Simulated scan of single mutants.
Amino acid sequence: MNTVNPYKTFVKQFFLSYGCSIIDDLPSHFTIQLTSEMDEEIMNRPFYWHYMKKMNREGDPMRLTFTDTDQKQAGGIYLHAGTPKLHTLYNTAIKKGRTARLYEVIHEFTAQNRAMSPWLIVNALLHYRGKQTKDEPISIGINLIHGTMMLGMMEKIQHMDFEPTVSDYTFPMTPVISLSNAYKRMERHIETYIAQQDNQWIKESLLHLKQETQLLESFYESEDIDLDSFTKEREQIDNRYKPYIEMEVINGGMFYISQETSATWIH
């Protein structure tokens, strides 16, 4: 059974947000045409771009192809939790835009001004660490009027039009829920989400931690290693196998969404 690569949405949205284009989009792979600015930002070609600027030339930005397979003959960049280019994008996203305030573009006007509901949307990475490691992107939003919370917010807004100024004949509603209170609610919601996931990896990590610790203790008891070596190795075993989950916030923002769109999401 095929599963959806969880990193596709983030990567596509990242590049589209910075003016790049998707020139090939298939189930097995997709190709991005970089802009000059994005090529200079992430492709590590400082000498090339310095030369282009000195020569007053536009330069030739590269293309990137991402795949769902690690088969080398398939070509492209295998998109998974450990992909170096994926972490480059995470760092670039953090550096270029941690916060935003955007308004849904409204083209249809009514006799009365239309109210825009405030949503706090946060994108984060859940770092699962233990015997096996993975990073899970998560996008969560909360309506600051009535407190409705949803996951998968980037998928909901990625095809919508936003501007940094409010559209004519609309007005932003004043939040009822404070940002600090909203963020605390988000944290609790994510904790509930994590608790509902399969925790088999935690059991396996704890079992492996116990086995490795017992083996190390047997070496120490038989005097094969000294106390200093035992202490250092025990610390390394804990670092490798002790399971924990950490949330890293990538970015977030206030999005003012029409009540019609908000109602569609909720219902």
Rank of each mutant, 00 (worst) to 15 (best):
K53T: 13
R188W: 05
G75T: 13
D168H: 06
E40W: 02
K156F: 00
F230L: 10
F219A: 08
M62N: 11
Q200E: 15
T3D: 11
W119G: 04
R45W: 01
T65P: 02
I177H: 11
K156W: 00
T174R: 10
V176G: 03
P46N: 05
I142E: 08
Y241E: 13
D238Q: 15
P175R: 01
N91Y: 12
K12E: 09
S21D: 11
D135Q: 07
V4C: 04
M173E: 15
D24N: 14
S28T: 09
G252D: 02
T88D: 15
Y169C: 12
T35F: 06
M160S: 13
L227Y: 10
M38V: 09
M153E: 04
F109Q: 15
G59D: 06
Q132L: 08
F66H: 00
Q236T: 12
P6V: 03
H146F: 10
D168E: 14
E212S: 08
T67K: 05
M160W: 06
K72S: 10
L126P: 00
P118T: 11
R114D: 09
I257W: 05
D168K: 07
E187W: 05
M52T: 12
H267M: 08
Q73N: 11
D224N: 11
S21N: 10
H127W: 02
N239L: 13
I145H: 02
N251C: 00
N5D: 08
S222E: 14
Q13L: 12
R129W: 08
G252L: 05
E221M: 02
T133H: 12
K12L: 06
S139N: 08
Q33G: 07
S167D: 06
